[in-house]
């Protein structure tokens, strides 16, 4: 199985880059995943990643994009919780990329 290299330690991930053992997560790992995703982490990125860590802690859910944006809008306001801004931060999908960097599973929508 493929892995990320965090200061010499290997952290396993699945074929799409989501880590397989959620407790392996660290800020250093997040930085490594972000590099692999070509994302330059700023305070704004970290705010979303930290939000997702707390969200997962409370609900054990990796939120799909609609749910994520609504939850962020409620907690951080409409300037952050909107589609355009979130796609600017995470161009390949705010839910998918941010969940990956935050060490969450791949998000699933409703049916």
């Amino acid at each position: 199985m493929a892995s990320y290299d965090v200061n010499g330690t290997a952290v396993e991930h699945d074929e799409e880059g989501y880590i397989t053992n959620l407790s392996d997560w660290s800020k250093d790992l997040a930085q490594v995943i972000a590099d692999a995703e070509n994302i330059q982490m700023t305070d704004e990125h970290w705010a979303v990643v930290n939000f997702l860590r707390e969200y997962y802690d409370e609900y054990q859910i990796a939120p799909a994009v609609r749910v994520l944006i609504k939850a962020i809008k409620k907690s951080m306001g409409p300037d952050v919780g909107n589609n355009k801004y979130m796609y600017e931060l995470f161009p390949y999908g705010p839910a998918k990329q941010a969940c990956k960097i935050a060490g969450l599973p791949k998000p699933t929508g409703c049916v």
């Binding site: 409370e58 859910i61 939120p63 699933t108 929508g109």
Partner: peptide, 12 residues
């Protein structure tokens, strides 16, 4: 739940 909503999440 298809999204993985648990009773704990519902109660929250």
């Amino acid at each position: 739940s298809p999204m993985g909503v648990t009773a704990k999440a519902l109660l929250a």
